[in-house]
Amino acid sequence: MQKYPMTVEGEAALRGELQRLKTVDRPRVIASIAEAREHGDLKENAEYHAAREQQGFIEGRIQDIEGKLSNAQVIDIKTIPHTGKVLFGTTVRIINVDTDAEVEYRIVGEDEADIKANRISISSPIARALIGKEEGDAVTVKIPSGTVEYEIDEVKHV
């Protein structure tokens, strides 16, 4: 069975969502279904069908999260000695060699990725190019329009 890397924060977020789904959302939907049943004919009851659809979504999401957590390999970057190398969970500042534009990314699991928060997936092209490299190294990333060269400015274990 394949394990999926996840940060400590990512695992905590999934566990929190799972707890909310089981203790808040699921009971609320069950109550909505019961209330809609009291209105009579279920064939033409839009509230009932909407609540059942929402229940299906919640149950599916619960199963999805439980599956992800059971296959998660939680990695705490704080327990790994700082070597200056780019690893899963590290934050890396890179500089575009052509434009001198700086950007900082944290390399995280697929479910935690959020480009707006500068968190990129371990499976993204940039992260794959950066993993194992050190401060000062140059990396070439293949993108749809060609290639981009970056220099690793700083690696942080946050």
Score class of each variant (00 low, 15 high):
I95V: 13
K85C: 01
L42H: 07
E102M: 08
S145R: 11
R37E: 15
D76V: 03
D153R: 14
D41F: 01
D137A: 12
G89P: 04
I107M: 05
H39Y: 07
P81V: 04
D137L: 03
Q19G: 00
K85A: 13
K43G: 01
E134F: 04
A51Q: 03
A101L: 07
E44F: 09
Q73E: 15
K43E: 15
V8I: 12
V8R: 11
V155R: 07
E53M: 08
V155D: 10
E104V: 13
K78A: 10
F57Q: 15
I94C: 02
Y4E: 12
G89A: 12
R15C: 01
A72Y: 03
E134V: 00
I80G: 02
N118R: 13
A117Y: 02
K3G: 01
V29E: 12
V155F: 06
D114Y: 04
K78W: 06
I95M: 15
V103G: 04
V139M: 06
E134C: 03
N71E: 13
R37Y: 02
E135D: 02
V29H: 00
T99E: 13
E38S: 13
K133D: 04
I120P: 03
R93L: 10
P81W: 07
E66D: 11
G146R: 10
I122W: 04
A13K: 15
A50D: 13
R106K: 14
L42Q: 14
G132K: 14
V8N: 01
V97M: 13
D137G: 06
I62P: 06
K68P: 00
Q73P: 00
I120Q: 07
K142S: 06
P144Q: 09
T140N: 04
G136V: 03
T79K: 13
N96D: 14
D153Q: 11
V24W: 01
I122A: 08
L42D: 09
I58S: 13
S121T: 11
E149Q: 15
G109K: 11
V148R: 10
T99F: 05
Q54A: 12
I80W: 02
R106D: 01
T140Y: 05
K156W: 00
A127Q: 04
R119F: 00
K78L: 12
N71K: 11
R20L: 03
F57T: 12
I131P: 01
I122N: 14
S70T: 10
A127E: 08
K133F: 02
E112C: 00
T83G: 14
T99A: 09
Q54G: 05
I152T: 09
S32W: 02
R52W: 03
T7K: 05
A101W: 02
I65M: 07
M6F: 07
L69Q: 09
G84N: 11
E154H: 06
R93A: 07
I120W: 06
G16T: 14
G40L: 00
L87E: 11
G84Q: 08
A117I: 04
